[in-house]
């Protein structure tokens, strides 16, 4: 019984040590330049998708440009100040992730805006068609009514 308890304690301690070793490594994993560039490329793909759905991607493109700029700065600093470079890579990665997460909402808003624009275009076209029918039926009458009002004081002269 005593042996089993000590084995269990040893196993738990080993598990804790392993967990402590892995948790910091995964939470502060180093971002490499190529990884962040791949994330930016993925973010760009999601921006294109949102834009093709009719979304306004101006703010996403601005964020993407900030990420690209941070990676350029980090690449320049990587050899001389790796800690600062790593911080810049992390910031760029966070921006790329923000773009990736925001893109579906922008795409959905774009689809809604496109639908609204199509509905208003259809309503405008239907209104113009109705106006064309009304014009066809009533323009001659309106014209002659107007003509009569403006020429009612005319007198016919004998030749």
């Amino acid at each position: 019984m005593k042996i089993q308890t000590s084995r269990a304690i040893a196993a738990m301690a080993a598990a804790c040590v392993i967990a402590l070793l892995f948790v910091p490594a995964s939470s502060a994993s180093a971002q490499t330049s190529s990884q962040v560039k791949a994330q930016i490329a993925q973010a760009y793909t999601s921006v294109l998708s949102a834009e093709s759905s009719g979304g306004n991607v101006t703010s996403l493109v601005a964020k993407l440009n900030s990420a690209v700029s941070l990676v350029q700065q980090a690449d320049a600093l990587n050899a001389t100040d790796p800690a600062r470079a790593q911080s810049l890579y992390s910031q760029a990665s966070a921006l790329a992730q923000q773009v990736i997460s925001a893109a579906p909402a922008v795409a959905a808003a774009g689809r809604a805006a496109v639908f609204d624009a199509q509905v208003s275009l259809a309503v405008e076209t239907a209104a113009l068609a109705a106006l064309a029918v009304l014009a066809y039926l009533y323009v001659p009458r309106l014209y002659w009514g107007y003509w009569y009002r403006t020429h009612s004081d005319w007198r016919v002269k004998k030749a």
């Binding site: 064309a132 066809y136 323009v139 014209y143």
Partner: peptide
């Protein structure tokens, strides 16, 4: 008159 009125509206559409 009909042709002119309808023509203008079709052009706008």
């Amino acid at each position: 008159l009909k042709v002119a009125a309808v023509g203008v509206i079709v052009l706008i559409a």
